[in-house]
């Protein structure tokens, strides 16, 4: 295998890894496992989604523009 082929093989592995990670992160209870890097505004001490288990959570994706 020449240098170009090795690079292509490496790129393919990298892409495969990314795809696998995306699938894992898109699992059913992904939202329940997330820990915030910075506490949300008005979180009153909630640092992770796991703390919200036991009640439904409506996530509203919005924009300021």
């Amino acid at each position: 295998m020449n240098a170009t082929n090795w690079k292509l093989a490496g790129l393919a592995l990298l892409l495969l890894g990314t795809a696998t990670w995306t699938t894992a992160a898109g699992g059913d209870d992904e939202g329940a496992r997330y820990t915030f890097r910075r506490a949300p505004v008005n979180s009153m001490g909630v640092r992770g989604m796991a703390e919200l288990r036991g009640k439904p959570v409506l996530i509203d994706f919005w924009g300021t523009r």
């Binding site: 992160a25 992904e30 939202g31 329940a32 989604m49 996530i59 994706f61 919005w62």
Partner: peptide, 17 residues
């Protein structure tokens, strides 16, 4: 911070857990 990714794109969007 997005706690999860959802299918589709654009706003508005939501996920109900």
């Amino acid at each position: 911070e997005r706690p999860l990714e959802i299918s589709g794109s654009g706003l508005p969007a939501f996920a109900l857990l």
